[in-house]
Simulated scan of single mutants.
Amino acid sequence: MIEWREEGVLLSVRPHGETSVIVEAFTEGHGRHLGVVRGGISRKLAPVLQPGAQLDLHWKARLEDHLGAFSVEPIKGRAAAVLGDRLALSAMSAALALAGFALPERAAYPVFYAQTVALLDAMAAGTGWLPAYLDWEMALLEQMGFGLDLSACAVRGVNEDLAYVSPRTGRAVSRQAAGAWVDRLLPLPEVMLGGPAGLVGVQAGLRTTGHFLEEKLAPALGNRPLPPARARFVDLLVKSG
């Protein structure tokens, strides 16, 4: 018997048989991991198995490559905290869906896991989560091998007056170097460089990260479409402004 136990964030739940569910969790040491929770639709467990929850997970399987089974204990729920905030609820759904979409199964990303937990906690607290969400998408791209290089202008080599991102290379471009290509470049708002985090800037930043999620990450994962939750969140964000 193979087993391990650690905390994890619940990404998704789907039915399995008549009374069980398959849960998908993101843990620090075992990455994105799936397992069966027997009796997962019961009155006792169903309220615990809400996406975004922090859980104590105990996984067992006869062999390493088996699906295995989870036993779970609640640590902290987050869904109830965002139910009254449509935007935060939508953003949480987008983050959980993107993590499930992008992260390879059973590969550990401890730093990104910690950033994910911090983001979800900020959403539940209702403070500072919007720019943190943009940072999280940038970090996801970085972890998956499609990180943006915003350190200096790709054309001039300077780190001043950076205003755009090349849609092909993901490198920054200064306002002066953009020239006739300006209409083809993606926005680089100050918030992506550690500056003020206004709503307009975050919207512009999500346009840029969205391009690389759709045009770089998704093709690398077999041209699967991005989770609809991400588009719903961006649409809601635009309408909120």
Results as ranks from 00 to 15, higher is better:
residue 68 G to L: 05
residue 104 P to V: 06
residue 118 A to T: 07
residue 161 D to P: 00
residue 174 S to R: 00
residue 155 V to Y: 09
residue 137 E to P: 09
residue 192 M to P: 11
residue 18 E to C: 09
residue 183 D to S: 15
residue 70 F to P: 07
residue 54 Q to V: 02
residue 230 R to V: 04
residue 163 A to Y: 02
residue 187 P to D: 09
residue 26 F to K: 02
residue 139 A to K: 03
residue 172 A to W: 02
residue 11 L to D: 03
residue 205 G to V: 09
residue 63 L to G: 03
residue 202 V to C: 09
residue 217 L to W: 01
residue 234 V to W: 13
residue 91 A to N: 00
residue 83 L to K: 13
residue 74 P to L: 13
residue 95 A to N: 07
residue 160 E to L: 15
residue 66 H to Y: 14
residue 169 T to S: 15
residue 193 L to N: 04
residue 133 Y to F: 14
residue 239 K to E: 14
residue 170 G to H: 04
residue 213 L to Y: 00
residue 217 L to G: 05
residue 31 G to F: 04
residue 93 S to C: 02
residue 210 G to P: 01
residue 200 V to A: 15
residue 156 R to Q: 15
residue 195 G to M: 06
residue 189 P to H: 12
residue 67 L to D: 10
residue 7 E to I: 00
residue 55 L to A: 07
residue 230 R to Q: 02
residue 202 V to T: 03
residue 80 A to Y: 08
residue 131 P to E: 07
residue 145 G to C: 10
residue 207 R to K: 12
residue 136 W to S: 02
residue 177 A to W: 07
residue 55 L to Y: 09
residue 10 L to F: 09
residue 169 T to Q: 10
residue 30 H to W: 13
residue 8 G to R: 02
residue 113 Y to S: 00
residue 94 A to S: 14
residue 63 L to F: 06
residue 23 V to K: 06
residue 199 L to C: 01
residue 88 A to L: 01
residue 225 P to E: 00
residue 85 D to V: 12
residue 180 A to Q: 14
residue 228 P to Y: 06
residue 11 L to F: 04
residue 84 G to V: 03
residue 35 G to N: 08
residue 57 L to M: 02
residue 8 G to V: 07
residue 111 V to W: 08
residue 224 R to W: 01
residue 115 Q to I: 00
residue 229 A to W: 02
residue 25 A to T: 15
residue 63 L to C: 05
residue 72 V to Y: 04
